[in-house]
Every structure is written in C-alpha cells, then in structure tokens.
Design a binder for these strands. Structure first.
Length: 757
DNA sequence: TATGACATCGTTTTT
DNA sequence: CGATGTCATA
C-alpha cells in the first residue's frame, strides 16, 4: 500500500478488502509524514461506511485522534456550508429538506404557477430537478439549452429554488451543488479548504455523480493527491446520476494516475464468485478483472421456483429455519429483494413463525408523520422561515387554523415575497385576520415564541422536544385518542426522545474527547505521537465554530440512512433491497424475486445501459454471500393489485449450470412472453433443468388415486394428513390437515412434500 | 373545519 | 394493493 502522492485509482473487486486498503493508506500517509491527520479527507456515501472507516483508522493509528476527516459527501458539505453559506446569501441556520419536504414544496410551486399536476407529476418534476442538480446544472442552464420540456422544467426549477431560498432551506442536491458554487465563486474560500485537505480519498467512486466529481476536482487542485477506490461492476446509482464514466475514465482525467487492482476476494466461495462473475461479464461497460478466491468449491447455488410470492416466502423461511435448527443465528442470513414492496410476504411468513427480523429501509423511522411533526417544530424554532415545516405544524395538533386561513396567509407571503412566518407575523401585527383565526394565529405564535425562549437558555434537544410535545398540546391530543395507532405514535415519539438523549450523550463524549486531544497536542510532544505536534488543524477546524446542537441533531436525522442503523451483533434477520445491501456481507443470502420485471426491472428493460446496471445489481446481490446463496423467483406475483406472470430473470441463464441446483422446470418460460427468452443464446442451453423440486419417486399422490390418508411432511407446515386430492398432473391440488398449522390447500407441483412412513 | 367515503393512479433503487 | 387526493357531508 505504499503508494505515495499523486492520483491513484484502486479497482477493488467485491470482497477484496477495499476498506482495509483505504484505512491502511490513511495510516501510511500519516506514518510516513506525507500528511497530518487533519490534512486527510476521506469521503464515503453512507454514514455507516464512514463510521466503520473512522473506527478502523483509529485502531490502526492506535489513537483516538479524530482529526482525519471521514464523512459522507453530504455531511462534509453541510459542515462546510454551516461555516460559509452566508457568502451565498443564506443564513447559517438553514434547514435541510429531505425528499418528502422537497416533494411538498414542488407541489406548492406547481400550484402557485398554475401548472396542472396531471401533465407535470410532482414526483417526476422533483426527481428531474434533483437530477439536474446532480449534473451541476442551474435553472438558467436548463432553460437555455433544452427542449421545450426542459425549458418548462427549468422554469419550475427556478421557482422551486426561489422558494427554497425564501425558506432558508437546502435540499440534498443543494448541499453538494452549493458547495461547488461556493468554491467556484469564492476562490479564497476554496484555497482555505485546499490547504486544509492535502490528501483526498474517495470510497465507492463508481457511484459519484458529475457534481460530486466537480467537487473532488476543485478540492484536489494541483496537488492531484486523489485516491479513489471503486468497482465499476458495483455501480448501481445511475438513477441519481452516478456516472460510471468517472471511474472508467479516471486515468484519462488524471494523467499519470497509478492503478492498482485488488482481485483477491476474501469473502465468497469459488462457486458464488464464479457464478457472479459469469453474470457481470456480460456487461460491456467495464474494465474487466479476474477475481479469485482461496475458498475452492463450496456449496452450489440453490435455485428455487415458487408458485407465487407467498410460496417464495414460505420456501425462504423454511430454509432459514432449517439453518437455525442447525445452529446458525438469524443475523447470519439476509433476504435481498429489488423493491421494498416485496418485503411484505416475507414479513408475514416470519411473523407466523415468530422469527425476529428487521426491515432495513422502506419507511424510515424519521419519516413517520408524528416524528416529522415533532422535528418540524424543532426546525421552525431554529429557522422560522422554513415554510414547509411551518405549514406542517400550524394546525397540528388541530388548533382551528384551517385550510382557508393558511391559504390566505400563504397568499400574503407570496404578495410580499416573504416566508410564511413573516406573513403570519404581519397578519398578527396588522390585524389582518378576522373571526376565530384572529385569536388563534397569535396564540400559535405565542407558543412558538415561548418555546424559542426556552431553547435559548436550555440547549438540551431532548428537553426541548419534550417541551414542544407538552406545550403544543401534541401529547395531550394523542393521549386522548384511544386507538392503537395513537398508541404506536406515542411510542414513536418516546423513541425520538430517546434518540435525542442518545445524540446528546454521544455529542458530549465526542466534544470532551476533542478537548482532551487538544490538550495532548499542546502539553506533550513525544507522548502524543507524530500526529499532534505541528498539526496545522487550528487553521480550519470543522468540529469547532458555531455548531448549534439542534441543527446538528436535525442534520443527523435528515441525512440518516436506513443502513446506518444496522449492526453486526443484531440477531435479527435483515430484509433489504440489493441497493441497501451493497457493502455488506452475510454467510447466507437469499436473493429473491429474480424475475423479468423485477431484475431487470420493467423500467430498465428498454435501455441497454440501464440493463447493464440491473445486471450489476444482481452481481452486487450475489457477491454479498459468503458461504451459501439462494436465488428464487415466483411464477405468479401480485403487484399493485393485479397478477403478473414473470419469467425467470434472463440473468439466471447467464449462470453456468454447474454452479447451481434446483433450476426452474422446463416449459415454463416458453409459455410466457419474455423479452429475451432465458435460453443462453447461441450454443447449448446453459440451464440445467434436471434437478426439479420434487423427485418423482417421492411425490405423494402422483399417479395414485389413493393418496388420501397419506401422511406427508411439508417444509413449512410440518407433518400432516392428505384429506382430499383434486385435479391431475401439474395442477393437482391437495387438501392437507396439518398437525400444527391446520387445514391448507397445497398445489402439489410447488410444494416440497415428503412422504412420511 | 374535520371526517369519511370514494376515486384514481402509478407502479425502483437513495444521500 | 395501498397511498394519495377529492368531494360531500355534519
């Protein structure tokens, strides 16, 4: 790892130890005195990755030195902007809008521009704006060089941006884009940060988008001390403008770049690795690499075709229970799917057997309505101009400020070109309101004022949150509601309070640690190690300065990713999308729903580049598995209320037969319309259909009419007695009375029945 | 102004 | 299917 200065590209295959590479390089830079800890910036995409890297750097340095800056793109930019954003005309206490805030704002903008949501679906408008931001484009640029459609989107984008500024708010895209603009328009500021960070390291470089690329170039400057680590085969964020060309063209962009390939896989068995490689090697957009492992052989990949999504879940859970019986713990396995919506049947099945599980992602805790409400109060206290938040809470709990009143106040704010809060204050001061609102609006403002006073002399976020819930009557309203939903909400709010307390604990600990290491730096020399003496961190210490605890808490929960919560020692079965799974590994992996329409997804089937990304996604899913990999799909699947028959994914046909057992039965894919049949193209078919689910000789009732009364065992329902046989051949159905699970109707063809003596 | 019944509608992945 | 929006009604 002893590569020195200059651009460095590390092509790190799946499971090749890229975090190890990164952390060792950091340690090496420090040990060889190429850089002080504070001169190193390491950027990741998730907080979890950042935390892991930070911990490993600390253990390598045998130090609690916090001054290596390891953080996500987004939180790094937030930290910079909190210091510098006044140069761009925003206030330091800016709010950060997540996707749902941003969507609400788009809707409001469309209404104010009299644009029909039918022709301009807010969700796609929001995502288009976001993608323009990811490409570094401002409204004018969108309007200038686009189609008619782009021109109109550009107009909406411009108005949206105006409203954000009025609210003193930034969306996720702004965090990066505004930082880039700050650096581009204020060379002096850029210079400060360039001096601070002499070496930059980037994790998951294949997922960077154009504006992130621009940011890295700006920060790198002439030093060219940029080390990027990535794997083009794991680029799966095209939809948010991640550009695989960034990694493919790195050597062109940074002439003289050294290239290192990490091709030894420390994770998976040969069978898993070879199968995954076989799939991804069908892509054209790749540099190509040859992964190898010492773990020769290994269990074959287990394929399973289920009748429908419930049978798929039943199979997975029964296999899981077998492994638990054999002594595995639940956290050793994981279920990966393409879309969050697929989690339900698995959850139901797991509940049935009392298996504890955790859905990673999906509806986030911080997206729950009551949690968002509470946070909206916090945000308004910090930044009254945050109109989205104010609109959220102005009548929650119900305080008689209804739609009409809000509408009127909103109009007032538009006339004045101010935030809603300003308009509300003006309405109060100039007595512009009549009727009930004339009393209720000032009363609401008074509550906010009182809370703001309180926050001024007590900086505990948890205390403030509790005061908010108390004094606004929010808690009381929920307590009076006896429904189970209200009870769940109260619990969630309690959890939020705990999170705030935990945040404060962690924050205090970090602060005192910083103080301690600062004392070390000034008081001792040799004892503090090579990093302390002469470290120029004082020039620009991002941990210091005007950090408001509430802001810090809010940005932490807003930039919080689902996966950030996942810990190694959690003994629950994790369920997640393949996207979320990237970067993780499990002894056993169930990759489910590997069907045309899901993997590859409908939306990606017509675009070759998108199709390659789906293939990479499949690759990512497969390469998470260390020892055992299951790949399943369902013949029939209920999606959005209707029934779909999806053929097995074309990617399955790309896996050489020798690596798997339990392939789909023949005759299936032919009877359905598949964009490209699952045949493997020219040459002999690579799919081995010989190993069907139920060997004929074990098949109860097959060809016999006297099956009634036969004792059978079902992998999920256990032992039972056949009480009725209907239909014949593949469509044979059995009524079985299970000893424990009761009466069930089972389609013979799909059930893994075993005859009992 | 709040609530509930009804219709509609779009269907991925996320910092 | 389920989330979201719209409309009518109390």
């Amino acid at each position: 790892m002893a590569y020195g200065d200059g651009p460095l590209l590390v092509l790190a295959g799946a499971g090749s130890g890229k975090t190890r590479m990164l952390t060792h390089r950091i340690a090496h830079l420090i040990a060889t005195r190429r850089a002080w800890p504070s001169q190193i910036l390491a950027v990741t995409f998730t907080n979890k990755a950042a935390r892991e890297m930070r911990e490993r750097v600390e253990s390598l340095l045998d130090s609690r030195d916090q001054r290596v800056w390891v953080a996500t793109f987004h939180s790094t930019c937030v930290r910079i902007l909190r210091r510098e954003i006044t140069q761009l005309g925003y206030q330091t206490s800016f709010a950060i809008y997540d996707q749902s805030d941003s969507l609400a704002l788009v809707k409001r903008v469309l209404r104010s521009m009299n644009i029909d949501e039918k022709g301009w679906p807010p969700r796609s408008v929001r995502s288009e704006i976001d993608r323009f931001k990811s490409r570094g484009m401002l409204p004018n640029e969108v309007i200038a060089d686009g189609s008619l459609h782009d021109e109109q989107i550009g107009q909406i984008y411009r108005q949206y941006q105006t409203e954000l500024r009025r609210a003193n708010a930034l969306d996720f895209g702004d965090l990066i884009l505004l930082t880039v603009r700050l650096f581009e328009n204020h060379p002096g500021v850029l210079e400060t940060y360039r001096r601070r960070w002499q070496h930059i390291l980037v994790d998951e470089y294949q997922d960077t988008n154009p504006v992130q690329y621009r940011l890295l170039r700006l920060l790198t400057g002439d030093s060219q001390n940029l080390c990027v680590v990535g794997d083009e085969d794991q680029s799966i964020y095209r939809f948010r403008e991640a550009d695989i060309r960034n990694i493919l063209d790195f050597e062109k962009d940074f002439p003289g770049a050294k290239v290192v390939r990490l091709e030894r896989n420390y994770r998976s068995t040969q069978a898993i690795l070879d199968a995954a490689t076989a799939v991804v090697s069908n892509n054209t957009e790749r540099k190509g690499k040859t992964l190898y492992t010492d773990r020769e052989g290994g269990e074959p990949i287990r394929f399973y075709e289920a009748a429908d999504e419930r049978a798929e879940a039943a199979f997975v859970v029964s296999e899981l229970l077998k492994s638990v019986d054999a002594g595995a713990s639940l956290g050793d396995s994981a279920i990966f799917y393409r879309t969050h919506a697929q989690s339900r049947p698995f959850e139901e099945e797991l509940l049935k057997y009392n298996v504890s599980y955790v859905v990673v992602g999906g509806t986030r805790f911080y997206d729950r309505a009551e949690v968002k409400d509470a946070l909206a109060y916090l945000r308004v206290l910090r930044n009254p101009d945050d109109t989205e938040s104010l609109m959220r809470i102005i009548n929650r709990p119900a305080r008689g400020i209804g739609r009409t009143t809000v509408e009127r106040l909103l109009m007032l704010s538009e006339e004045d070109g101010t935030s809603l809060h300003r308009a509300v204050e003006r309405a109060r001061d100039e007595r512009l309101l009549s009727g009930a609102a004339a009393k209720r609006v000032p009363a609401f403002l008074a509550v906010l004022d009182r809370l703001r006073d309180q926050s001024a002399y007590d900086d505990s976020v948890a205390t403030l949150l509790a005061a908010i819930l108390e004094q606004t009557g929010y808690l009381r309203a929920l307590q009076q509601d006896t429904s189970v939903e209200a009870e769940a909400r109260l619990e969630n709010l309690q959890e939020l309070l705990s999170a705030a307390e935990e945040f404060e604990r962690a924050n205090r600990a970090a602060a005192s640690q910083r103080d301690a290491s600062q004392r070390d730096a000034t008081q001792s020399d040799a004892a503090a190690g090579p990093r302390a003496e002469g470290d120029p961190v004082g020039e620009l210490d991002l941990d210091e300065g005007p950090q408001n605890l509430i802001d810090l808490f809010l940005e932490q929960v807003t930039l919080f990713a689902a996966v950030d919560n996942l810990t190694e020692d959690d003994d629950r079965l994790p369920l997640m999308t393949a996207h979320v799974a990237k970067g993780l590994e499990f002894p056993t992996v169930f990759l489910v729903g590997v069907e045309e329409g899901l993997v590859p997804h409908f939306a990606s089937q017509s675009d070759p580049a998108a199709l390659e990304e789906e293939r990479r996604l499949c690759y990512v899913g497969m390469t998470r598995a260390m020892d055992r990999l299951y790949i399943t799909h369902a013949t029939m699947r209920r999606m959005h209320g209707s029934v779909r028959y999806n053929p097995p994914s074309r990617f399955l046909a790309e896996i050489p037969a020798e690596f798997g057992v339990g392939r789909p039965r023949p005759g299936r894919s032919e009877s359905f319309d598949s964009p490209r049949s699952s045949g493997a193209g020219p040459g002999e078919p690579r799919v081995d259909y010989s190993d069907s689910q139920l060997p004929a000789d074990e098949s109860p009732g097959a060809g016999t009419s006297g099956a009634t009364g036969t004792r059978v065992e079902h992998p999920v329902f256990g032992a039972g007695t056949i009480v009725e046989v209907s239909g014949a051949g593949a469509g044979t159905k059995l009524r079985i009375r299970f000893d424990r699970a009761g009466m069930k109707t089972i389609v013979l063809r799909y059930a893994q029945l075993r005859m009992l003596p």
